[in-house]
Amino acid sequence: MATFLRENASELGVRYVIWQGRIWSRGAGDQGGWGRPYDGGGVYDPSDATGGHYDHVHVSVRR
């Protein structure tokens, strides 16, 4: 799902995707793989299964 969202970001209006402790956003390059490391944004614990988005895909879209 995360890869599909990334590959179709323009058509779907995807701003960013967080998955497996990594965050990808349109226009940003990859750092050592898929996206760049996700730091939790100061709110979530990125080492936690839910906080690091290891157990679900997080997607943000434009309206």
Rank of each mutant, 00 (worst) to 15 (best):
A2K: 05
A2M: 03
A2N: 10
T3C: 00
T3M: 00
T3S: 00
L5I: 11
R6Q: 15
R6H: 15
N8C: 03
N8R: 05
N8G: 06
A9M: 03
S10V: 10
E11F: 10
L12K: 08
G13E: 12
V14F: 07
R15N: 08
Y16C: 03
V17M: 02
W19R: 13
G21V: 10
R22Q: 08
I23S: 01
S25M: 12
R26G: 04
R26P: 01
G27Y: 00
G27C: 01
G27K: 08
A28H: 08
G29K: 15
D30F: 08
D30W: 05
D30T: 08
Q31I: 11
G32I: 03
G33Q: 04
G33P: 03
G33M: 03
W34T: 07
R36A: 15
R36H: 14
P37D: 08
Y38H: 13
D39C: 06
D39S: 09
G40V: 02
V43C: 02
V43F: 09
P46R: 02
S47Q: 12
S47A: 11
D48N: 15
D48K: 12
A49T: 07
G51T: 13
G52W: 02
H53C: 13
H53F: 02
H58C: 07
V59H: 04
S60H: 13
S60I: 12
V61P: 03
V61R: 05
R62Q: 08
R63I: 01
